[in-house]
Amino acid sequence: MTAEVLSEALTIDKAQEEIVEEFDYLGDWTERYKHIADLGRKLPPFPEDQRLEENKVKGCQSQVWLSGHLNGKQIVFDADSDALIVRGLIALALRVYSGRTPEEILSTPPEFINKIGMSEHLSANRANGLQAVIKQIKRYAVAFQARTETE
């Protein structure tokens, strides 16, 4: 899976930095959104057996799914949305957070979103899913952390 391959190559901080650099090369907002739309198109397909009610992230405007499973010490995420921009932003979030340990996830705020000028997608008002996805990723991290500690 691409997320796993990438995360082996880059630390979580490096992954954020790389995204920021990538966006630095882009021009005005139409270019940024075109790039995000492209990333959205390239997001690996969501496993259909995971398209369950419990994996639906409650976002008001678009439908969003997220599922995560442990792979050794790391959590691997799959996600999807019917809105392309949300898919693209989710793809970025997975580059940062998928294939990481719970500790890494919990100690890393999604700074790249601000830095690439997409902070409005994190506001509660937008209720667009990205905010909810990141929260849900952190919830997975807390849950898996608790599980590995009790084991």
Binding site: Q61, A83, E120
Partner: peptide
């Protein structure tokens, strides 16, 4: 083929206030 939310996002960049949903 374009989600209303995506349209709303682009229009907002252009200073256009509409509602999607």
């Amino acid at each position: 083929g374009i989600h209303p939310y995506d349209i709303g996002t682009v229009l907002d960049q252009e200073g256009i206030a509409i509602r999607t949903g």
